[in-house]
């Protein structure tokens, strides 16, 4: 998919673990893993909003478009 998810980078910046983020935004670690590994086909606005709130970032910090993929 041409959309990259930079969740790993943001978690590293905020010094936060995946499980902590999963708890904070109330989704399962399995679903967060799907998002992190780029297997997700879609993301709900509510999930994106919750991640942005927990990581104090913008959607653009998490998602990136790449034409090479």
């Amino acid at each position: 998919m041409a959309i990259l998810v930079n969740l790993d980078r943001m978690l590293e910046k905020r010094n936060m673990k995946s499980s902590e983020l999963a708890d904070a935004i109330n989704i399962t670690t399995a679903n967060l893993s799907i998002l992190k590994t780029g297997k997700a086909k879609a993301i709900r606005f509510s999930t994106l909003e919750a991640i942005c709130e927990a990581l104090k970032c913008q959607p653009g910090d998490l998602l990136e478009y790449s034409s090479e993929l």
Binding site: N31, L32, A40, K41, A42, I43
Partner: peptide, 8 residues
Amino acid sequence: QEENELTV
């Protein structure tokens, strides 16, 4: 269904 299951 696959798309629905892979929607986070």
